[in-house]
Nucleic acid binder design. Sequence first.
DNA 1: TCTGGGGTCCTAGGACCC
DNA 2: TCTGGGGTCCTAGGACCC
Length: 424
Amino acid sequence: MIALVDCNNFFASCERLFRPDLQDVPVLVLSNNDGCVVARSNEVKALGIPMGVPYFKVRDIVEQHHVRCFSSNFALYSDMSQRILGVLQRHSPNLEVYSIDEAFMELSQLPIQDFQGWGDELRREVQTDIGMPVSVGIAPTKTLAKLASSYAKKHNQTCVLDPQHNLKEYEKILSKTPVGHIWGVGWRSTPKFTRVGVRTALQLARTSESWLHSQLGITGNRMLNELNGEVAYPFSDLKEPQKSIMASRSFGHTVKNLHELESAVASFASQAAFRLRGFEQTISSFGAYLRFRTPDGETKGQSAVSHFATPTNNTPELVQAALKLVQQLYDPTYGYKKAGVFGHHLQSANICQVDLFDALPPQLRSKQKLFMQAVDSINNRYGSETIHTAAIDPNTRKWHGKKQRMSPAYTTDWSQLPLVHKAS
DNA sequence: TCTGGGGTCCTAGGACCC
DNA sequence: TCTGGGGTCCTAGGACCC
């Protein structure tokens, strides 16, 4: 059996951890740039504010009901995520971290008699130790475990879903789950199903393999198996290396000036390079992306890619490449809204096919590597961009997104520790 | 006026090979 | 006038996830 442990309203719950006064009031968290709603407490859900809605569309209702809004505070959320994983690890070493607020646990090695009791005990423990409310769903496949945990969330207790041992309960729960709530059924396919009368998860689980294949391709076959208790997505606690990387931001204000655009993109390229070094990967194809409004009011995107004969994760090299691409794409009549860099074909930094005609001699490459190590350790200690490429102009901050409602980094910055008592 | 930032997998179609 | 059959690799775009 596989358990899915899923934090309830994760970002909103994190904001509450150090603010007991927010316990029973509506709390919502905004995306970067304070653009749209990415997390909602139950009170906010009850107000009918949907997930992903642009903030300005719900501002009235937010003000009317005194909803507390926060900019997203990833320093806090990541740290809380790590702490929760620590608790889960005490129960099972077989952990597959699925996202910042979810993890699968493989249970077949554990001597568990009563799954429901086990799950409820785990929930109590995370609540007591961290203060985070979580839901637990337990089932023979990941798809069913996801389904169980979303059912568990509504009923405030662990949900065990097993067609082999309790068909009645399985049918009851699947028949109450709308087809669009199934893992892998998105807003595009939902209408395809409801149009032909397939409205619930149970109805989907009873369709034929050939029909579901005609609708979703091979994904359909897997979904059907998983819904019927046969594993198509095996549990795996091995972390596969990433295949692509991306660093991008929407701008706080429209940017027209090339210098500013370059500064932003140089910063994204540096970020990407830093992350690549973190997981010991290099990249051979690297691109830049710009999103803009044309003089006739149309919003469009454009991108360009360059290639490296010798794969790299060297900041100056990536910054230089990105700048060239931006200069290539730039049009002074456009108003730029967003920019980013991306890379594909990541490969291990330790196994590297060198280019026979590399412009840089190998000694210089290894010197560069040491140099980047030094820069990283300084930035890790004193804050990112303590040392940065000169292409990043600290005076052009216009592109920085809005973050007007950020809570303190309570647990990751000495200067922002929560204040318990202020001596007078 | 104001709409995030990461990722994954699958498929179709084009270019190419013999 | 007639124009095969079997592959591979790459890319762009779509759909999905959190």
